[in-house]
């Protein structure tokens, strides 16, 4: 059985103040799939992501990673399997230098120092960030911070990568570089984003969330072609699928 499966069954979450954030979410993501999670602000994307490695626990329903249900007792293993990249790299990069930050996860896993060093090297190299190793975080550009943040997760060798808005705040070049790097990953990927062009490029499958429910789950091309669905969920077609302003044709 593969460990790379992510499954939600009738997942509901209700915040302490009574807000119903997620209602009856059900989906199954298979090994190696790359799935986009789209939806307007407040649709429940972040809440859903926070369930995937147990930052939040379901009010009702279940989450399964591999065949393991996510409960308090399995948190430790699940957090090794699911690597979570937060939206704001400033929250994720909390150590004095990048190298130490990338070492944080492996050190918590109790690895011997030599292995930790090797993993730090590998993760940084993979993200084209080896030169940042001894730099303090505040010296980095937004793109560098983002790559470093992903490296902090890669060093734990997760099977599943969860990314929250990976391209927000990046300039076109940094975005392009990041896209190239993400494309090369063979992990199961779940990407929450407003960047629908990224979705088109990276994710064959899309989940549309609206007001805490799954509105659509299927092929990205088909979903983005459904104008009525997009409008109902406060979304817009990705630029590359919008008609040419001059001739009205689709490239």
């Amino acid at each position: 059985m593969s460990h790379h499966i992510v499954e939600a069954i009738d997942l509901c979450h209700c915040y302490g103040d009574g807000t119903q954030a997620l209602t009856n979410i059900t989906f199954r993501i298979h090994h190696g799939e790359s799935v986009a999670l789209v939806g307007a602000n407040g649709a429940g994307k972040s809440t859903l992501l926070q369930h995937l490695n147990g930052v939040l626990l379901p009010t009702s329903g279940t989450i399964r990673i591999g065949e393991v249900p996510l409960v308090k007792e399995t948190l430790r293993d699940i957090r090794r399997t699911v690597g979570m990249v937060f939206q704001d790299p400033d929250d994720q990069l909390f150590s004095p230098t990048i190298g130490q930050d990338v070492a944080f996860g492996p050190l918590n896993m109790g690895l011997p120092p030599a292995d930790v060093a090797a993993r730090v090297h590998e993760a940084l190299e993979r993200m084209e960030a080896l030169h940042l190793k001894d730099k303090p975080v505040y010296r980095l550009s937004a793109g560098e911070k983002r790559r470093a943040a992903i490296a902090t997760v890669l060093s734990m060798t997760p099977d599943i990568l969860v990314l929250d808005e990976p391209t927000s705040g990046l300039d076109p070049r940094a975005r392009r570089q990041l896209l190239g790097l993400l494309k090369a990953f063979r992990h199961t990927k779940i990407i929450a984003t407003h960047d629908l062009d990224l979705v088109l490029e990276l994710c064959p499958r899309t989940l549309v969330l609206h007001e805490g429910r799954v509105k659509a789950d299927g092929s990205t091309r088909e979903i983005f072609a459904d104008q009525a669905l997009l409008t109902a969920c406060h979304l817009e077609k990705p630029l590359t699928m919008q008609g040419c302003p001059k001739c009205g044709g689709i490239p």
Binding site: V55, F104, T152
Partner: peptide
């Protein structure tokens, strides 16, 4: 949360 997510 970010610390917990990385095994803290």
């Amino acid at each position: 949360q970010a610390m917990l997510a990385r095994g803290f």
